[in-house]
Design a protein around this nucleic acid. Structure first.
Ligand SMILES: [Mn+2]
Ligand SMILES: [Mn+2]
Ligand SMILES: [Zn+2]
Ligand SMILES: [Zn+2]
Lengths: 153, 153
DNA sequence: ATGATATTGCAAGTCTATTGCAATTAACAT
DNA sequence: ATGTTAATTGCAATAGACTTGCAATATCAT
């Protein structure tokens, strides 16, 4: 259970800590824009694209360049704080917080684009089978479903 | 079992027929470039990107514009003759023949890029589970593994 | 507060893929 | 065979996601 200071909202408090440690440990700086991007990802259920992050922060009157958004998600990803998701036929990457979340996959509505987490991964056994069949050493996998969400059916 | 005419090589004979029927049924024309692209895909084990198709046909002295390659694979895909594959972090689509092949998935070497077919799909049961859990109607899925091939280990 | 250097914004560039349009070619009727 | 019509092609321009160079700015250890 997380207890937040009365001087900050819970969300900011929670993320700020692990986040700042990770950045400093990597010799990187805690900047306004990095905090803004991370805070937005925390407040958002769906994985966001760079332009979505940019647009949303604009609306929130946070001044940030789109290039900086790209550089920021790149840094957050290499620190392991953020996962990059490339959904089929979307043509753009999306990013979501990893902090404290299990490895999982997604289903996306091909009509409206709504993305839902699938909190499961059925591929542990299959991975071993593939390794023995192909002689590859498996490092990672992607799995994604597409279809129609309840609203769009 | 396929018996080919002595007047044509087996590969051309096999593909040519279904291919021409599909095109005509859709009110499309059987052109030099479409035959060249399809013939190349038949001769190639790995799924090919548009630029790879373009480069290879150039080498074979087949005159074709890159735009035409894009338009050709698009048509072949919409006729159901070709599958479009978007591998994670490749930044370009690949295309492979569907004709007579089972639904399957791929593993890709992150070192050298070698792509191998995984002639299996473990997702039939999972699809039903997901449909009941999410209320989505599942239409399709993608599954891909990455790792190191035997040579790159 | 100061200095070293990481970060940012802007402009320009890269890469994949698409679109408009005039010239060409395939399909079909004569 | 020849002509007619519409699909296809090539070229140039365009779009969209993402990256890179560089000078200005912000962070942070001292
Ligand atoms: Mn998710
Ligand atoms: Mn394949
Ligand atoms: Zn998984
Ligand atoms: Zn499958």
């Amino acid at each position: 259970m997380v207890v937040s200071s009365i001087f900050e909202s819970r969300r900011i408090a929670v993320s700020g800590l692990g986040f700042k440690k990770s950045l400093k440990a990597a010799g990187r700086r805690v900047t306004r824009t990095r905090q803004a991007v991370l805070s937005l990802l925390e407040r958002t259920a769906q994985p966001l694209s760079a332009t979505e992050i940019f647009d949303q922060l604009q609306q929130e009157k946070v001044s940030i360049d789109l290039v900086t958004v790209y550089r920021t998600v790149h840094v957050l990803k290499e620190l392991g704080l953020v996962a990059q998701i490339e959904l089929h036929q979307e043509g753009q990457a999306r990013f979501e917080l990893k902090e404290g979340r299990e490895h999982h996959h997604h289903i996306r509505c091909q009509m409206c684009g709504a993305i839902v987490d699938l909190l499961l991964c059925p591929l542990k056994k299959l991975t071993k089978l593939i390794e023995s069949q192909t002689q590859y050493i498996v490092d990672d996998h992607t799995l994604e479903f597409t279809g129609l969400c309840p609203k769009c059916q």
